Simulated assay, not measured.
Amino acid sequence: MKMIFKLPLAAMALLAVVSCKDFKKGYEDGKAAAEKEAEDAVEEVKQEVMAQSIKFTMEPKSDSNVKGEVTFTEKNGTVKMVANLSGLTEGEHAIHIHQTADCSSADGKSTGGHWNPTNEPHGKWGADEGFHKGDIGNFVAAADGNAIKEFETDQWCIGCDDENKNIVGKAVIVHQGIDDFTSQPSGAAGARVSCTGIIQ
């Protein structure tokens, strides 16, 4: 009788030990998964924080009233430019990155020519015939003189070591006219009516 009584107790004790181990393992697995999820969330926030953003004020040139702001944001290897402008004449205008962050001259020509680190001919962005790294292109101003130009590329960076991509130390120029994408070396876009230097 004693043996019959002890066997179930031993089995129950063994079952309790196994169940406890399973519970502990499940708890540890769940804890590890939760910690991994928390680490991933922190890393995602870090990446968001690491996105660089710089903003500059556009100032009028060539006796114009064209002003505004231009923002560059770099994230995951891509730079996005957003230019908010006012004081423009209605219609199309060109916008380019020029080689020198110097807006000191009244006509904006202190910025030099288009930024062209790879020595390509002037052209439309992405053209097989070639284009400057500063050849952003044209945009349209509304009847009230306001305009927004957005542009995004992986061919730029903010403050990296690649001089063929680094936009820091360059300038943004808005022109009175349109870029015809063929005239050399600048697209015959006319007077420089607004300028900002990209200095980090």
Rank of each mutant, 00 (worst) to 15 (best):
F23C: 13
K24L: 06
G26P: 07
G26F: 09
Y27K: 10
E28Y: 13
D29H: 11
D29Q: 15
D29M: 14
G30T: 07
G30R: 05
K31F: 05
A32W: 00
A32G: 03
A32E: 04
A34C: 01
K36T: 09
K36L: 11
K36Q: 10
K36D: 05
K36G: 00
E39Q: 12
D40Q: 13
A41D: 02
A41C: 02
A41W: 00
V42R: 11
V42K: 14
E43I: 06
E43G: 04
E44G: 07
V45D: 15
K46Y: 03
E48S: 14
V49R: 13
V49C: 05
M50V: 13
M50W: 11
A51V: 02
Q52Y: 00
Q52G: 03
Q52V: 14
S53F: 01
S53C: 06
I54A: 02
F56D: 01
T57M: 07
T57E: 14
M58K: 00
M58P: 00
E59M: 09
E59N: 07
P60C: 02
P60L: 04
P60D: 01
D63Y: 10
D63E: 12
D63L: 11
D63I: 08
V66F: 08
K67F: 07
K67W: 01
G68W: 07
G68H: 07
E69R: 09
E69M: 11
E69N: 10
E69T: 09
V70L: 05
T71A: 05
T71K: 10
T71R: 06
